[in-house]
Computed example of a mutant assay.
Amino acid sequence: MKKVVLTIVSVFFAVLLFAQANDPIVGKWQNPSGEGKIEIYKKSDKYYGKLYWIKDANKKDAKNPDEKLRSRKIQGLEILTNFTKDGDTYSGGQIYDPKSGKTYSCKMTLKGKDKLDIRGYMGVSLLGRTETWKRID
Rank of each mutant, 00 (worst) to 15 (best):
K85L: 00
S44F: 15
Q94W: 07
Y90H: 06
Y52A: 03
L51V: 08
K46T: 09
Y47Q: 05
I38V: 14
S100D: 14
K63W: 06
S44V: 14
D97Y: 07
D61E: 09
K60P: 01
A62Y: 12
K73G: 10
K50P: 13
K46Y: 05
K73C: 07
Y41I: 12
Y47H: 05
A62E: 15
Q94E: 15
P65M: 00
T89W: 03
L77E: 13
I40H: 00
G87P: 10
G36T: 10
I74D: 03
L80Q: 04
D88E: 14
K37H: 12
Y90A: 03
G101R: 01
R72G: 02
D86L: 05
N64D: 10
K60A: 06
N64K: 00
E39F: 08
P98Y: 12
D86E: 09
T84Y: 05
D56F: 00
D88A: 11
K42V: 06
L51S: 11
K85A: 04
K68D: 15
E35W: 08
K50F: 08
S44K: 15
S71K: 10
G87N: 12
D97N: 13
S100R: 14
K55F: 06
P98R: 02
T89D: 10
Y52M: 06
K73W: 04
T89G: 02
G34F: 00
I38Y: 03
N82D: 15
E39A: 11
T81S: 13
I54P: 10
D61I: 03
S91N: 13
K46L: 07
T89P: 11
D66F: 01
W53N: 04
D86I: 04
G34T: 04
N82H: 13
G92M: 01
D66G: 05
N82F: 04
G101Q: 09
N82E: 14
G49F: 04
L69E: 15
D88F: 07
D61Y: 03
T81A: 07
K59N: 11
K85G: 04
Y96P: 10
L77P: 09
G36H: 01
I95V: 14
I74L: 07
K68A: 09
G93P: 01
D88R: 01
I79T: 02
D45H: 05
G76F: 03
L77M: 15
I74S: 00
N58L: 01
E35H: 12
G76I: 04
T84W: 00
K50R: 13
Y52R: 08
Y90S: 03
Y41Q: 09
K85T: 02
Y96I: 02
R70Q: 15
G92Q: 04
K85E: 05
K55I: 07
K102Y: 13
T89Q: 06
D56H: 08
G34S: 02
K42C: 09
Y48G: 02
D66Y: 08
K99L: 14
